[in-house]
Amino acid sequence: MMARYTLYLAVALWLAILAGLKYLIHPPMPASVLMIYMTLSTLGILLFVAADEARFQAFLAPLKSVFEGRAPLAAQVLVLAGIPLLLGWGAWLRTAPTWDAPFEPRVVHPEPPSSFSLHGRRIETANLKNPLRLPDPVQLEKYTQEGKTIYYQNCFFCHGDALAGDGHFANAFSPIPANFRDVGTISMLQESFVFWRVATGGPGLPKGATPWLSAMPVWQNLLTEEEIWKAILYIYAGSGSTPRTWDEEAGHEKH
């Protein structure tokens, strides 16, 4: 009956769990978390097998027949040679040098400075608002459309036609350009933060955010203050996101 397959079922189940955790879950989990899940799965399977004496004996039977020399010679060689090879290979994967690029920790959304320089003036970050985000929809639309032109003559090569960070220059850079459609980028940031990032670019990042890795230009060298605000209007409108605001924050705090 099924009893004679107990060992094989247990191994198949273990492999299925491993494959499921590794390939079916997105984004992939860190190796350390996978290790914890697999340890728990191993213990679980062993506990289940050992809970019943008959089941446990059925589980051990194929192994016993190998170790006692009753199994076919090929199976004996396969198991006796296979287990050390598997363990040795596992050890190799964990200890052999891989020569990957050095790990460089990077703060993705660093704390903005209290003030920064724009065209020779000091700008206070705290009270910075987009002066072009007007209540009049006609005016707002006009500025957004102007921002669109600015975006497609300056930004889209990297940040992409659909604002998804996948422009035709994008894969020349690491880290890759920001994807404005991703909820983890501009929609969780205030416009003042975005303005600071655009105006001061990669070189304006604090040290913890690895400014030397960013290819983001210092846009105040190429655009006027008003043009930057217009482009910001567009990246929100074009990607279908809205900036985080202080009012919302206050509202949340009141709850």
Binding site: E68, I83, P84, A96
Partner: peptide, 27 residues
């Protein structure tokens, strides 16, 4: 780089052979 893979591999092989020999004798 070969220390751990070979060490662990041979250790496992030795353990297996010892176990196999014991189990065969008692069988």
């Amino acid at each position: 780089a070969w220390f751990w893979p070979l060490g662990i591999g041979f250790l496992a092989l030795g353990g297996e052979l010892w176990l196999a020999r014991r189990m065969r004798t008692s069988a």
